[in-house]
Design a protein around this nucleic acid. Structure first.
Lengths: 233, 233
DNA sequence: TTGACAACTGACCGATGGTCATTTACAGTG
DNA sequence: CACTGTAAATGACCATCGGTCAGTTGTCAA
């Protein structure tokens, strides 16, 4: 039901057409898989629809039977990964004990296992305003927003000193922190050897520990300030 | 020594050539000005070199006499704005009293006055790895890095409980927070009316107060944890 | 076996980043 | 002021890439 025997860099032409609905779903998934593969071995800037199609063993036009635009492919990958991350967060927020460092570590581990996520997340906003139908963009934002709300409640249960609404705010700030810190701290591939220069030593830091620390600081500060305000009342 | 009388949307053709070195510097600055103008009225995705050239009253080819690539223009604008932001931060860090909320407000005010900065900052990393010479990229990173180091020391002076190196770390995390939070919290123009939908209410928050809060939380958490660690020793 | 449907294809189009042979403003010289 | 060499400025041109669509062909039901 699927192509086979990749020749060197990309899969051979597909032999079978996706006629049944489930086969179409599979094909769509195969394109997304190819996209992930491509994203992992080259920067987003060189992600071309033609390369994607060839890697999936299809012609360029076929990709457009399953996705509206190049950006919709990327947004789909991103949406899936974002949901994965929320799953991880949900599990980490489950135990009755509030251990911020443990939560942060779970997130960091997940990011490491899915290196394609952060580059996509970083360009998500500009993707949403370029070449994505407004409906698709809204659907994406709603999905993320719903999940955030739900997790925000969990956070407030786990950290009872927080006021109503601060859970979501904290999650959004954390997401932002993760996104932004990566952009500064993780050097692009082309600059890797330049990182040996003495002037670049400021940026020679471990993203993982840096993020873990910052997250713990942020959450610590938030609960602390909430407690203070509660005491004043 | 300069063009004049813009016709409707863009400046008229230049009449005088930039022969003297200072005139060349002026012309380069004029191109950057045009770039800022363009960035303020349309999203980055539609920023074309041709539009930039026309707005500056030049032909496309002329832009390439002053900049190597489209991305170098954008990086130049970004670098200038980043230095501006560091200037603001330096002034805010000057007074002897450590008032985190005041510092955060100064940053937020600056961001509001220079709306072109955050979109550029958000795509900075992908610009550095696409279409920018490695030398230019290194020069940019070194400039930012040097300034960060210097300001990090200031932070540590102002918050004496911080350990050596934590000042820079805090600044980088703050920069990341600002960048990342904006990407989630500030909806693209094309989604503005969609923000009225009830499902989108999670994202209906004021970026300014959100960022101010998160920054204060982060800094509060960092100093608090540093103090704790010092006490344990 | 065959005919109709639709999945798939790839040549083609328009837009855009970037190049370079040509044009021409202008400073310097007499 | 006339003339000329230099180099700033130009815009036609090229290559690349996202996206389209008329035509091809695998698939399946009759």
């Amino acid at each position: 039901m699927v192509s086979e025997s990749a020749t060197e860099k990309h899969a051979a032409r597909v032999r079978h057409r996706a006629t049944a609905p489930e086969a179409k779903i599979e094909r769509r998934a195969a394109i997304l898989d190819a996209a992930v593969g491509l994203l992992r071995e080259a920067p987003l800037g060189v992600f071309s629809v033609d390369a994607l199609a060839r890697r999936a063993g299809l012609a360029k036009g076929t990709v457009y039977l399953y996705f509206g635009t190049r950006e919709e492919v990327l947004l789909s990958v991103h949406a899936e990964r974002a949901q994965n991350l929320f799953d991880v967060l949900e599990r980490a927020l489950a135990p009755p004990k509030a251990d911020t460092a443990r939560i942060a570590r779970a997130v960091v581990r997940h990011l490491r296992e899915h290196p394609e996520f952060l580059p996509l997340a970083a360009t998500c906003r500009s993707m949403l305003e370029t070449n994505i139908s407004v409906e698709t963009a809204i659907a994406f934002k709603c999905a993320v927003g719903g999940r955030l709300l739900q997790l925000g409640v969990r956070v407030e249960q786990l950290y009872p000193r927080l006021e109503r609404g601060q859970g979501v705010a904290l999650l959004m700030a954390s997401y932002g922190l993760m996104l932004g810190l990566w952009q500064i701290a993780e050097p692009p591939k082309c600059l890797e050897e330049a990182m040996l220069l003495p002037e670049m030593r400021v940026f020679k830091l471990d993203f993982d520990t840096q993020l873990t620390n910052a997250l713990v600081n942020l959450w610590e500060g938030a609960t602390r300030r909430a407690a203070q305000k509660a005491r004043q009342k």
